[in-house]
Write a protein that binds this DNA or RNA. Structure first.
Lengths: 239, 239
DNA sequence: TGTACATCAGTGAACGCGCGTTCACTGATGTAC
DNA sequence: TGTACATCAGTGAACGCGCGTTCACTGATGTAC
């Protein structure tokens, strides 16, 4: 009983523990590189260096640079999702508006804390890289799922008229397969479309600030952000 | 009179003509590289290759990679600006809504035709590159200037209440120095803020489509785009 | 018009750099009996 | 418990690559007189 035995299937044993530890550090260091240099500056050699390993050693953990990037993207999505869920949780069963603003503020805060990560998730696609959707989607839809839930709660009894002159058919087209696939449960196409637009506006408003769409030193970006998010709120919750 | 003389100051002469021609081709080839590989794939050597010149020769025309990038950014802004101005011109002195949609559709069309260029102008910033604002701003504000003018025309007599509960002061903060600097002429802070939000939403809607915010194969992106742009229209023109 | 000099576009070799990935290897950990 | 073998993490050298930029140079174009 000197060496820890794999009793039952628990991942004990020196090798397994070390591997898990290296995997943890790999993500940690990778995220640091992402934060400092952006996705374009992420390199196998650089990460290996900061890990104190030879470059080739990384290939024991990752099939290549793209694989590493995918891991980090999922890590980003999960961090954002966890933070936003907690923020909305924290305001409790408040009215939809309060919950919406909690969500929005939390998204913004994360983006400002992690501008490069934000750019990776919601900015220009990384050239010559395609994220595998089956890996990326579950983590990537946590925030939007929550957003849609908030809209749905609010819409339960006082959902406003659609913004475009009531085109159910159009909304259905806009959003089609998602509904067919049972995505977002029992939302109507119009509700789903309004949620997607609210998300589009929120992402646009955050990106406008993070990417400095209006340059620097031109008034208060947060006040502009609030204005746009108030617009998105009306879209999501009905006017 | 065998050699053309610099009569008056006109840029004639073999040398001047050839230089102008090479400068033209430089932008042309640079834009092609941008379109094909994105900003990250733009290289001095690559452009030189396609120009049929040695890499070092490029340094006669450009101080380095950043300078080349700046030139191309201005070229993109100008192309977009020219196209959008023409599109709005083409609908004549129609009502503001028609002009807004002409502008919006033209912006979208350009973005879909030039996704990498769009990413360069309105997506994630290029790492380790800072555009010199004095070079970039005049071309970069053509579309927004036009957008604000459309809003102003509409607002002449029926400008709606501000979307946020009438906070002149807040709008002023959001937009401050631009007004002080006489930017956008005689717009009030609220008008300016509404214009900026409309632009934020439009850019967000176009980027959502170009960057595939909602993935591929999930309904009709154009219908979603229209919904968002209808929202932006209400912000710009009053409800 | 002709000549002597100055300017300028473009060449080609070279610099030093960091990159992703492969490969044969060593030594430690795990496993079967 | 002890031994023989299998698995696996990590090494270090090497591959071929393309990059931005510099430098001394050549030959054509422009200019002054």
């Amino acid at each position: 009983m000197s060496t820890p035995e794999p009793a039952g299937g628990a991942p004990t044993g020196v090798r397994a523990r070390r591997r898990a530890e290296v995997e943890r550090r790999l993500v940690e260091v990778g995220r640091e590189h992402l934060a400092r240099h952006g996705a374009a500056g992420l390199t196998v050699r650089g990460v290996a260096r900061d890990l104190g390993m030879s470059p080739s050693a990384l290939f024991r953990y990752v099939t290549g640079l793209d694989d590493l990037l995918t891991t980090l993207i999922v890590s980003c999505y999960d961090e954002l999702g966890t933070q936003v869920e907690a923020a909305v949780e924290a305001v409790g069963p408040a009215d939809a508006s309060t919950r919406w603003w909690a969500l929005a503020r939390s998204v913004r805060a994360w983006a400002l804390d992690h501008p490069h990560d934000w750019a990776l998730l919601y900015g220009s696609p990384v050239p010559a890289y395609d994220a595998p959707p089956e890996v990326t989607t579950p983590a990537g839809t946590r925030v939007t799922t929550l957003l849609l839930r908030i809209g749905q709660e609010a819409g339960a009894d006082d959902w406003g008229e659609p913004v475009l002159t009531g085109q159910e058919a159009r909304a259905a087209a806009a959003v089609g397969p998602l509904v067919d696939a049972g995505f977002a449960g029992d939302l109507s196409p119009v509700q789903l479309l309004q949620g997607m637009t609210a998300w589009t506006v929120l992402v646009g408003a955050v990106s406008a600030e993070v990417f400095e769409l209006f340059g620097t030193g031109n008034g208060d970006p947060e006040a502009r952000w609030e204005h746009a998010v108030a617009v998105a709120e009306r879209v999501l919750l009905g006017r």
